[in-house]
């Protein structure tokens, strides 16, 4: 399967490095940026198939970044890293099509989520609509998982 390119956006360089090491094998290439403006430069320079982004950054936060990207009709999957107290930013981000949110500093399911994001970004299936069968199957899974709880 073709691997996609990943972009990591965070103003904390330690976090960027840790994520890069963890996800290196999943992506063809991993690019980094320390704020939204740099991220836009990277997106304009390279084809990016999935973005992992801190939601709360100086200069240009994650919401402003996704808004800018979407205005260019780019539907690349956005996975946001969020900390406590970012609920308002999360509710803002979903208005522009968020893929998922992960809690800082948890890295446990980052690989799984990024895998899905890269798959969607490379298949171009974010541009395609899910089939009815897939929706029904997702719905049934949700019903079953909640019943088990």
């Amino acid at each position: 399967m073709k691997k996609g390119n990943l972009l990591i956006v965070d103003d904390e360089s330690d976090i960027v490095e840790n994520i890069k090491i963890l996800l290196n094998d999943l992506a063809a290439e991993v690019f980094t940026a320390c704020n939204g403006l740099e991220a836009i430069e990277q997106i304009n320079k390279h084809q990016i198939h999935c973005i992992v982004c801190d939601i709360n950054m100086p200069i240009m936060n994650g919401v402003e970044l996704i808004k800018a990207i979407r205005s260019q009709e780019n539907n690349v999957p956005f996975i946001f890293y969020t900390g406590h107290g970012n609920q308002d930013l999360m509710m803002e981000a979903v208005k522009y099509g968020a893929f998922d949110f992960l809690d800082k500093p948890e890295l446990s399911n980052l690989e799984e989520v990024v895998s899905r994001g890269l798959r969607e970004g490379t298949d171009g299936s974010s541009d395609l609509q899910m089939s009815d069968e897939t929706y029904l199957s997702e719905y049934q899974k949700l019903l079953q998982s909640l019943e088990k709880e």
Partner: peptide
């Protein structure tokens, strides 16, 4: 255009 998981968490 947001995914289920994103909306659930937001």
């Amino acid at each position: 255009s947001s995914k289920s998981e994103a909306l659930q968490k937001a």
